[in-house]
Design a protein around this nucleic acid. Sequence first.
RNA 1: UGGGCCGUCGCCAAGCGGUAAGGCACCAGGUUUUGAUCCUGGCAUCCGGAGGUUCGAAUCCUCCCGGCCCAGCCA
Length: 557
Amino acid sequence: MAIEENTAPSNFIQNIIQEDLDKGKHSAIYTRFPPEPNGYLHIGHAKSICLNFGMAKKFGGKCNLRFDDTNPDKEEIEYMHSIEEDVRWLGFEWNELRHASDYFNHLYMYAVKLIMQGNAYVDGLTAHEIREHRGTLTEPGKNSPFRDRSVEENLGLFQRMKEGEFEDGQYVLRAKIDMASPNINMRDPTLYRIKRTHHHRTGDDWVIYPMYDFTHALSDALEGITHSLCTLEFEDHRPLYDWVIESVGAPCHPQQIEFARLELQYTITSKRKLHQLVDEGHVRGWDDPRMTTISGIRRRGYTPASIRDFCDRIGITKKGSSIEMGVLENCIREDLNEHALRVMGVINPLKITIENYPDGQVEEMEAQNHPQKPEMGTRTVPFSKTLYIERDDFMEDAPKKFFRLSVGREVRLRYAYYITCTDVVKNEQGEVIELICSYDPTTKGGSSPDGRKVKGTIHWVSAEHAVNAQVNLYDRLFTHPNPGSTENYIEHLNPESLIEVSNCKLEPCLSSADLSKHYQFERTGYFVLDKDSSSEALIFNRTSTLRDTWAKIDEQK
RNA sequence: UGGGCCGUCGCCAAGCGGUAAGGCACCAGGUUUUGAUCCUGGCAUCCGGAGGUUCGAAUCCUCCCGGCCCAGCCA
């Protein structure tokens, strides 16, 4: 843990904060993570969470969790709960939990102040007309005919907007800035709109709701935020952010700093598209283990530490970039290699009978829970005449480099005996359904007194003692490295992103697995119990495979 | 094309005028009762390109090339 906290490389935001602290601009820093509660958090949010909470932690400052709940059309309580759960799961605790809606009264008064100063006006143009007046990227906009209403008239109209005298869309409050600004955000942006929607927190108290640019800047200022960290697309909004704060004379002026959002190859990190995957049933919910939502990743078996490590490794810059999946996979493998209990599980069973092993005999073989960590202890695994091994560990016409089982070849059964395959049993279709083997009784525990070597060691499970389970094998959700950039990303869904395998044979101790334990099924991958699992029907999710150099060699042929 | 931002190894990323960190990936070898782990070594004479300033530039200046973002009463 202590090591983890110190591995994050420096980044430009950290440098700015350090400098502000050194120069005495601030005595302590205050950040915030401000999601809109309109969906579940994803891996991209994790980057922002780790940055905001991480900077506060590093410099002994504070960080708030604030729900940016100014658009009741899209927001729900359910999302707020999931967001809180996800932030906590990642290992962070907020200083205060706030909502932009906490400030609705305050915000309204600031708006009135702007009007009185002549910095805002009520516009009666329709949305369509406002768009036409805005101009284009290369042409300046035109002033609204209502731009020069008197302060009194604006005040009256704005109050009547608040009191619900008008229809939705009939009027908006706009900042009076500059319709000819080369920055389109400064062409008299909308500050308030009329929206008769029930708000999940303020109920029907309001029929006017403040817009993001107005709300966000002032919420930051009201909370005493020192560094307002957001993503690159808000760069053009910074002049407006500053304008709002300066114009209302807010108590402090937080510094907005933008960084690049996370792009992860072969996935999607857009709330809208994640919504579509869920709504159209392409996945089984927000927490489907194939989703890169925090809840999906959690169900898949990723650990909070591995996600924090990932966020540290990818860095913070202003450069648009796309991270390879391998980085994320490496993070979880590194963590799980360290902490996961080793067990044996056969995903695709092939029966073997050891003909020279006594009928009915059962031996308890001692196995280590972690070969590099004796302190993690040992367990016993029952061994008998009839076993299951992995189908892939047998090959009829095996090449020389194949270190596993084939007729006439000897391998080691992990923690048990050396066995040699003597015969193959096939069904009418010619498929191998059973192997006949013999064992060497002098090799108990897996080493031979004569010192002879075997190249391969394979895992196994005693047939009569095995527990049955369903195992879900996951692969990347998309076959395209950047599905979000394609015309129709749905077309690029990976049809093999989930393979459910039933009747897997696991060693007995797995019957007492629980959600908190991570396992390595030796030689096949890291697994975790699924939340839908029950003692009658065990279900495991594959978090990740192990690195597989054999597969790589095999592929090259 | 008006404005804003960005360009250092396949993917990330340090570097802030003194002569290219690190991680992932990849390659080669060693250890190993997981073809896992672990260990060792290799992997940019070069920093989008061209000029210029300087004893000295990825770092400063000029021009050019390429990419991303902005015209919601979304955030």
